[in-house]
Design a protein around this nucleic acid. Structure first.
Lengths: 217, 217
DNA sequence: GTCTATAGGTGGATAGAC
DNA sequence: GTCTATCCACCTATAGAC
């Protein structure tokens, strides 16, 4: 608890408000009020509204990447690592509910106004590790070939990411509470998503009569 | 080309700008300029900026739902219908590149500021049809049981939706042009996504003494 | 239907006291 | 470090001529 300093109070309040209302609809004065400090103080810690926003994004994205890449680099079968990745992704998003909303807002911008380059770069890092995992799994015979590893990686990430992004719609489908499905439901979905991906990538049993004569591409 | 009327010119310009920059960052004057009319004229056709935005959303969402539900209601095997749905989803998003950006922005809002209820409702309509399709497929023995149909529907929609939403990140993964992957790549991905879902839902061969292996198309 | 001109309000940012 | 007070730019929306 030890007295969070004003800078942290401001970052916390800004994170919440930016996630809820977006950058433009959030005013400096609102952030100051929510943080319990005077709005002029924001300019003591941050050069302007834009840099405050960047600082918020940086803090959040750092957490995400640290947690998910750690799982990907762990040892184990490709299947186990893939499952761990999907579940880690869900845990990070459960723990930081503001993250998906903010990232999605950034992704929706076509011009690189704010921190898109940063997100692109980091997304690429985490993403590429996942691509490699799929590729390695294919070479090791754990995943079926004939699936583009990049496409597979997109499919895998998409399942969980979309679940959080489309929360208002998901809520309707699952008859969940106003603020979205409870963590146990989210975890159940994450397990489903991992299973869905593993089933999609599973090596098909070679038919009893014509196993090896057919060779696909 | 028969002289698009001012109202349509305004809607077109507004759609593009809202999608590119978001609601708040787009000014009435910019829209007027882009439409080639005076900004005061917007208030002749629309009560205020908010209602203009709603009109833009309505036009777009209408197209999306019309196209995708039509595919779901078509006849055929569950597998064929699912595939048609996924590819139709991709086609609509290719044809209306502004749609995913706008919808995503709406979904990111936590308070129902603009047209979230509408999107929720329509998403639920389209979504529920997909749930039903999966459920029917399971009962007919075409899809494996033990997968929650609602979860499966989310996984299916997520793959294509996320592809468009996360365009800036996808671009990096696929080494695509600045304005995203070309339509042929998108279609290839859509086929992958359909295949990924069908493989994930395929009925596993029952045990070693089972009927001969199934080959999906 | 379309324009000019402008009122009215809000928000980001700064100056400077304490 | 934190606050009060305020400036200035900009944007929505309206009044009213043509």
């Amino acid at each position: 608890m030890a007295t969070p300093d004003s800078r942290t109070l401001i970052l916390d309040a800004a994170e919440r408000l930016f996630a809820e209302r977006g950058f433009a609809r959030t005013t400096i004065k609102e952030i100051g009020r929510a943080a319990g400090v005077n709005s002029a103080l924001l300019y003591y810690y941050f050069a302007d509204k834009d840099r405050l926003y960047r600082a918020v994004l940086q803090r959040l994205v750092g957490r995400l990447v640290a947690r998910t890449t750690r799982r990907l680099e762990a040892t184990g079968t490709p299947q186990a690592r893939l499952q761990a990745f999907v579940e880690a992704q869900a845990e990070v998003l459960i723990a930081n509910p503001n993250l998906p909303r903010l990232i999605v807002r950034e992704l929706a911008e076509s011009d690189a106004v704010h921190a898109v380059e940063q997100i692109q770069h980091i997304a690429a890092t985490s993403f590429r590790l996942l691509c490699d995992l799929v590729r390695e799994g294919q070479q090791a015979g754990a995943f079926r070939k004939g699936v583009d590893p990049r496409f597979a990686a997109i499919s895998i990430v998409a399942q969980v990411a979309y679940f959080f992004v489309a929360r208002p719609a998901i809520r309707v489908i699952l008859d969940a509470a106003p603020d979205g499905p409870a963590p146990p439901v989210v975890r159940a979905y994450a397990r489903h998503a991992a299973g869905f991906a593993l089933a999609a990538l599973a090596v098909p049993p070679t038919g009893p009569s014509a196993p090896r004569s057919r060779r696909k591409t």
